[in-house]
């Protein structure tokens, strides 16, 4: 028969009772099995093999003291898969300090890195809130736009209010457009007058008129 029953190394069959210890590692490094120290894991973040770096990044999710080292690593990490795991760990460890470091990545020219940071920040509402004010007032319109993108997906009850503030004062058309887009989902009826006022600020922009109409319809639910 073509089907063979085999337990891969270390997989106990059902009913075996206690798990068997791992055999010689055939791919994964022995890091986690032996309960490595934080120092070992931090060193492994710079390892040659991406598998080792991912494994270390994952294991550091229970070590808040590693946060800044993880932030350092994510800035220079080249492997997309390792980056993904680093961001997941930073989401687990979320803190205002981590959020502030990730906010710095909004200025990166590396689109994938920047978007990874935006997504991670969207997952840490309480931690990112203190950084958001400054980001929304940043001189660089791209940074303000990314801040609005974060705000739009944030599970934070002040988000709708802040978005209204953005459309009331923001000079850049694309930043306003992003805020209108976000309000289409989270906006409350109180946002409608501000949206109508925005229409008057960009009368020659067909997209803005369309987006405002859509957002108002979504908010009013008709």
């Amino acid at each position: 028969m073509a089907l063979v029953k085999a337990n891969p190394p270390g997989i106990p069959a059902v009913g075996d009772g206690k798990p068997t210890p791992d055999g010689p590692a055939s791919g994964l490094p022995p890091l986690i099995e032996t309960g490595p120290s934080v120092e070992d894991l931090l060193a492994a973040l710079d390892a040659e093999e991406s598998t080792t770096r991912r494994s270390a990044a994952r294991a550091l999710a229970t070590h808040p003291e590693a946060a800044m080292a993880l932030c350092d690593r994510v800035e220079i990490e080249r492997s997309p898969s390792v980056r993904v795991v680093l961001f997941t760990t930073l989401i687990r460890l979320q803190s205002p300090e981590i959020a502030a470091r990730l906010a710095g990545l909004l200025r990166s020219e590396d689109v994938a890195l920047r978007n990874g940071a935006i997504e991670a920040l969207q997952e840490m509402p309480a931690a990112v809130a203190p950084s958001l004010r400054a980001l929304l007032a940043d001189p660089d319109s791209d940074v303000r736009l990314f801040a609005v993108n974060i705000l739009g997906a944030l599970c934070h009850e002040s988000a709708p209010e802040w978005l209204v503030e953005v459309i009331a004062s923001e000079p850049h058309v694309n930043v306003c457009a992003a805020a209108v887009d976000a309000l289409a989902e989270v906006g409350r009826p109180e946002a409608v007058p501000a949206l109508q006022a925005l229409r008057a600020r960009f009368p020659d922009e067909p997209f803005m008129t369309f987006a405002i109409d859509t957002a108002v319809r979504r908010i009013e639910g008709r």
């Binding site: 089907l3 063979v4 190394p9 270390g10 997989i11 106990p12 791919g27 994964l28 986690i32």
Partner: peptide, 22 residues
């Protein structure tokens, strides 16, 4: 029935899931 290896695994637990490889 006997050709399939059944096991009790919580995939959310990385230590349990990690026993599977390749």
């Amino acid at each position: 029935r006997q050709s399939i290896d059944f096991s009790l695994v919580n995939i959310v637990d990385p230590v349990q899931a990690k026993r599977f490889r390749d």
